[in-house]
């Protein structure tokens, strides 16, 4: 199987869907000509290969970008628009939260909004909190949206292709540090269903539920703990909405212990939702209280030692696991 980075896998997904379906178009700030010109970017080379009709650089106008997607989707096109950094979601949020998510419902099911909002996310490049702020829990709180946050190159490809074909608005969070992370990627038609978590590492003792870049942190912790005889089961949520409760609950029922790990801040983070589901539906299986490992409740700081302090690491996962063993 070919090795691609997550960025290349996303690029392949976009190319395949654009080739397959003329109604798919790309729009956003720098999706054609970019200040971040890099072959690992998902939109690299698309303008050259698909032309300016289908690859639309926009002004710095997030509300208009998202509104473009809403209006065009209602008309039957398949917009794939990009928000350059996760915190800029706030500027597009009225169109996504009040319109993409609600207009189908308000129409009594007459209209559909098959659009994808790709949001470049994640800390780790010392840009500070107005460029780094993972807001996936906000979007998962909005009925009408689907929320996808892949961790591996293969998942990125399969889920983006499914997102583009989905008849609903999909918010697709891409961790920028993962753009450079390689992995095997199936060629051609590779579609993964939205709403399906994946057990990335089967294990016996403790379930770690995580998503996006924190999957790597979970694996690092698992390797170290394996040396001590502690066997982690890692569930990659991949989709936050709709939430695949069954996979999470099955794992917790097997291990009896749960750590939820995410990069986003703690209070109101999606770990709370996962924890609530487990408490409601699998409380009797728990052998110990669950633990959350998350970013602290602070804006993401810029200076490297401060930012490293912010981002959850394997040590914190190991501590949490040992705490409930």
């Amino acid at each position: 199987m070919p090795q691609l980075t997550v960025g290349q896998a996303l690029n392949q997904a976009l190319r395949e869907e654009m080739t397959r379906d003329d109604t798919v178009f790309i729009a956003g700030e720098g999706v054609g000509v970019s200040i971040h010109d890099n072959p690992m970017l998902p939109t690299a080379g698309l303008l050259r290969d698909f032309g300016p009709r289908r690859v639309r650089d926009t002004p710095v106008s997030e509300a208009a970008i998202a509104g473009l997607a809403v209006g065009a989707a209602e008309a039957g096109l398949k917009p794939v628009v990009e928000i350059m950094f996760n915190p800029f979601f706030t500027l597009a949020s009225d169109m996504i939260v009040n319109h993409a998510a609600k207009l189908r419902y308000l129409s009594g099911g007459k209209s559909a909004f098959p659009l994808v909002v790709r949001i470049k996310s994640g800390a780790g490049f010392s840009a500070g909190c107005q460029h780094s702020h993972n807001l996936e829990a906000w979007t998962a709180h909005c009925p009408g949206l689907k929320v996808v946050m892949p961790a591996t190159a293969a998942d990125a490809k399969g889920l983006l292709k499914s997102a583009i074909r989905d008849p609903n608005p999909v918010v697709f969070f891409e961790d920028m540090m993962l753009y450079f992370a390689p992995g095997p990627v199936p060629e051609d038609e590779y579609l993964l269903p939205i709403g399906q978590a994946d057990v990335k590492r089967p294990g016996r003792d403790v379930t770690v539920v995580t998503w996006s870049r924190m999957l790597g942190v979970a694996f690092k912790a698992a390797e170290q703990l394996a040396a001590e005889g502690i066997d982690l089961e890692i569930v990659d949520l991949r989709t936050l909405a709709p939430l695949d409760k069954e996979t999470v609950l099955a794992s917790v029922r097997k291990t009896g212990r749960l750590v939820v790990l995410h990069e986003a801040t703690r209070t109101g983070g999606f770990a709370g939702e996962v924890a609530a589901v487990v408490m409601e539906e699998a409380f009797e299986s728990l052998k110990a209280p669950l633990r959350r490992v998350t970013g602290p409740d602070i804006p993401v700081p810029a200076s490297p030692p401060l930012e490293r302090f912010y981002i959850p690491d394997a040590e914190q996962v190991i501590t949490a696991v040992k705490d409930i063993m």
Binding site: G67, A69, V70, G71, E74, P79
Partner: peptide, 10 residues
């Protein structure tokens, strides 16, 4: 207006 832009774009 932003949605009208999208509808007209289509």
């Amino acid at each position: 207006p932003p949605m009208a832009v999208g509808r007209a774009f289509a």
